[in-house]
Nucleic acid binder design. Structure first.
Length: 231
DNA sequence: ACCCAGGTGGCCC
DNA sequence: GGGCCACATGGG
């Protein structure tokens, strides 16, 4: 099964919610940092709280006391780290773009990506999420979810960010809407069926999935056990 | 009680 | 350059 088939099948199964739910590009940037290694549902509440306190702007985040910011975002976990990262982003936007969040997004893709990644706490995935969802630029977000699905399907051989990203970008139209939809679909598949502990028996892709066909999670575990048993 | 979550940077060899 | 670790709260 190729990636276009996966995309076509998933579209018939899930609603495509498409773009990142946010009122502004800057909200997406903050959300992208807050959601690192964290469930989106927990991020939503924190975003709402930031909004209620009028903190969803570059300048208010530059000016807020770091400890106070830590307390507000505590529910998302890694809160000291993330407060520092939000500060770094806000500071960058104020210093280089007169506090206009769109500044970096108006640059060409490779340059904007490199610049975002130079900010402390923004790595490949967060940069790509910001560029795709806030900047609507054609860069695929190769989240762990996506890598896991492609690995299990047998489409890719390495669970490596750059490798998976390139795999997708070489095979799908270089269109931000397509990348965003595919991403959204893969996230939904991952949450519903292709979890760490997957439900292959009810998964709509199981009949063509290498992992499921080799016995799913139970097959995987027994295989692992056999390999670990001393001779 | 335990395991996991839409990563990143630092340190080690 | 790859493998391991800290970072942390909240939900299943």
């Amino acid at each position: 099964m190729d990636i276009q088939t996966v995309y076509a099948k998933l579209i018939t199964i899930f609603e495509v919610d498409g773009w990142w739910p946010a009122e502004s590009p800057f909200e997406i940037m903050i959300g992208a940092i807050l959601t690192q290694q964290t469930m989106w549902e927990n991020v939503e509440k924190t975003i709402k709280e930031l909004k209620n306190r009028g903190l969803l702007s570059v300048d208010s985040l530059v000016n807020i006391d770091q400890k106070e910011l830590e307390n507000i975002i505590r529910p998302v976990g890694f809160y000291r780290l993330k407060a520092k990262r939000i500060k770094a982003l806000a500071l960058h936007l104020r210093n280089y773009y007169d506090s206009n969040p769109m500044g970096v997004l108006q640059k060409a893709l490779p340059e904007a990506r490199g610049e975002l990644m130079s900010i402390d706490g923004i790595g490949k995935e967060t940069a790509d999420a910001i560029l795709l969802f806030a900047g609507r630029k054609p860069t695929f977000v190769a989240a762990k979810y996506c890598a896991r699905v492609f690995m299990r399907l047998g489409l890719v051989e390495k669970d490596d960010y750059d490798y998976v990203k390139q795999f997708v970008e070489e095979r799908m139209p270089k269109n931000p809407r397509v990348y965003a939809e595919l991403y959204s679909l893969l996230v939904q598949l991952s949450k519903t069926y292709c979890r760490k502990n997957p439900s292959c028996n009810s998964c709509p892709l199981s009949d063509e999935c290498a992992f499921s066909l080799s016995g799913g999670i139970s097959g995987y575990l027994s295989q692992k056990k056999r390999l670990e048993r001393p001779l």
